[in-house]
């Protein structure tokens, strides 16, 4: 089985300081991978390097494209990479307003990716937007409202709908539940878990919330100071942490 995404020795430094270094892993189709670690451990740097938002200083990010097989996304041409990022890839930002067009209605936000890949039939675009808003539990009668009229949880769900409408194969998520209260978080996680299973998505989820990865991720990567300190199956890492930092992380979670 070929991996969907293969990361090899990715390194990013900010001047003399290390963003992340020596990161290598394979992600297989349908697999959800969690990246956890404290603030400043390099998780977001790594995610942005993989998603093409930041140019890494070294390494390879190979993606199994539909037409050409495994291709290094760092050396592919920019039009091709941008095409990839609005078809096969999706990126869910921590703050919904980074990933949404706040001045454009919810329906327009969902339709944007469809129009970006060439949809030119208003009725069909709208139909698909209604369908996707329904899947993320946003009422049809809210579809012409701007996202600024939505609650934080709704904005986040809208962002997810907007990203998944073109049927991507790989989703990057940067703290998708950050800043949401626990009950909204629970609903969002439920929704995400349903969508990921239903669509057979592969996903990379960056978070500092261990509950999120426990629920969503098959595999886990623990980062500290730009290095990967431990990897393994989620339950294995969380229930039997080996590295001192992982032990600290797991024991830091408050029990209610």
């Amino acid at each position: 089985m070929t991996p969907l995404l293969s990361v090899k020795d990715v390194r990013k430094t900010y001047g003399g300081r290390i963003g992340c270094t020596d990161v290598s892993f394979d992600l297989y189709p349908g697999e959800v991978m969690g990246i956890v670690g404290e603030s400043g451990s390099g998780k977001s740097t790594l995610l942005n390097c993989m998603a093409g938002h930041l140019p890494p200083d070294g390494g390879q990010v190979l993606f199994d494209t539909r037409t050409r097989g495994m291709v290094d996304t760092l050396t592919m041409s920019e039009p091709e990479r941008r095409m990839l990022s609005r078809t096969d890839w999706a990126f869910v930002h921590q703050h919904a307003r980074d990933g949404l067009r706040m001045g454009v209605s919810a329906g327009g936000n969902v339709g944007e990716r469809l129009m970006a890949v060439g949809a030119r039939h208003y009725g069909q675009i709208r139909e698909q937007a209604v369908d996707w808003l329904g899947r993320v539990e946003i009422d049809e009668d809210r579809m012409d409202d701007p996202p600024s009229a939505f609650s934080g949880g709704m904005q986040q769900r809208l962002q997810i709908a907007r990203n998944l409408v073109t049927g991507p194969r790989l989703v990057f998520m940067d703290e998708p539940t950050g800043g949401l209260d626990v009950s909204v978080q629970a609903r969002l996680l439920d929704l995400l878990r349903g969508l990921v299973r239903e669509m057979g998505l592969s996903a990379i989820i960056v978070t500092h919330d261990l509950a999120v990865v426990r629920l969503l991720a098959d595999r886990l990567m623990v980062m500290k100071s730009g290095h990967v300190v431990e990897t393994g199956l989620t339950d294995q890492v969380l229930d039997d942490p080996q590295h001192a930092y992982t032990q600290l992380l797991v024991s830091s979670v408050l029990q209610v």
Binding site: E78, P79, R82, R101, V104, S105, G107, G108, G111, E112, R113, M115, A116, V117, G118, R120, Y122, I125, R126, M143, D144
Partner: peptide
């Protein structure tokens, strides 16, 4: 400028979509 260079004009239709929706 990048959007012009790469012929990424989907966004222009978002404006027209918004018109029809409103």
């Amino acid at each position: 400028r990048k959007m012009h260079a790469l012929e990424e004009y989907g966004l222009m239709h978002v404006k027209l979509y918004e018109d029809i929706a409103k």
